[in-house]
């Protein structure tokens, strides 16, 4: 990985943030806090790690379990040239393909997720399929942290380790916030790393906004041979827009044109480096 690779992903992430903000502002709906939280992880994966386009049967699989980050996902697909950028303006509108949690109507989306806690089982199946087919492709699942309260995740986590699925990587977007409050106040997840480790996974905590670190760790997975990899990515809900960061009101609050302008100006200044 070169410094140009890192710079490219950073530029794409800044551009994708602007697209996602514009998308949800135009639509008057969406989950912008989750979009911005997950954006650097999504961009590291899609512009630096995942191999193969949507039509390649042996492509790496990516599963967005936190499907509410749909504006971020569609923005990334637009920058990949998989989805026409102008179509983002139809997000959530009548007869659009762009449901506000991701769906397979959109090329590049593997599964209909959005009911929380379903993604990891899908990923285990995808990783098992690669093994059955003798392929070296990898499967990446991005989950929210709140959705780890769903028990189905732990059924899947147990099986992945039991089968030694080293071709499977889960990234937890650990922004500590779910819809109503902190995950720790509602139904505490900590100690989260120990939970995954005790289930047999190789675990590392990373900075979910440090593109260089994400590219290095994701590119080098598995962390340990014979074990699935769990990256707990420390993130900030609303990352990149000062008035949204760590503010639970921005889980799904409407972004007015004035605030959109302010957010876009901040992003422009933030990418000078």
């Amino acid at each position: 990985m070169s410094s140009q690779d890192v710079a490219l992903v950073r530029r794409r992430a800044a551009r994708a943030r602007a697209l996602a903000l514009t998308t949800v502002s135009t639509a008057g709906t969406g989950h912008i806090g989750a979009d911005l939280s997950a954006m650097d992880i999504l961009c590291a994966l899609h512009f630096g790690v995942l191999r193969g386009g949507p039509d390649d049967p042996d492509r790496d699989r990516f599963i967005l379990s936190k499907a509410h980050a749909s504006a971020a996902m569609y923005s990334v697909l637009a920058l990949r040239g998989i989805l026409p950028e102008e179509e983002l303006a139809t997000y959530g509108a009548a007869d659009s393909r762009l449901s506000t949690v991701v769906s397979t109507r959109v090329p590049g989306i593997e599964f209909n997720t959005g009911s929380l806690g379903h993604g990891l089982s899908l990923g285990v199946g995808a990783a098992l399929a690669a093994r059955v087919q003798g392929s070296g492709r990898r499967t990446f699942v991005l989950t929210g942290d709140g959705e780890l309260q769903e028990g189905s995740n732990w059924e899947a986590a147990m099986l992945a380790a039991s089968r030694g699925l080293e071709n499977l990587v889960v990234i937890v977007d650990r922004n500590l916030a779910q819809k109503g409050a902190s995950t720790e106040d509602i139904n505490a997840l900590e100690p989260l790393d120990e939970k995954w480790r005790s289930f047999g996974w190789a675990v590392r905590t990373v900075d979910g906004h440090d593109v260089e670190e994400l590219l290095t760790v994701l590119g080098g997975a598995p962390l340990e041979p014979g074990r699935p990899t769990c990256l707990i990515a420390a993130t900030v809900k609303g990352k990149g827009v000062s008035f949204m960061e760590r503010n639970l009101e921005w889980h799904s609050r409407r972004l007015t044109p004035d605030l959109l302008d302010q957010a876009l100006r901040e992003l422009e200044h933030g990418t000078d480096d």
Binding site: E110, F111, S121, G123, G125, A126, A129, Q133, L159
Partner: peptide
Amino acid sequence: GIAEQNLVGVSIGLANAGL
């Protein structure tokens, strides 16, 4: 194992690969 939610999720993941 005894885990029906995962049972179905895993099967959808397998089907995605053409199995």
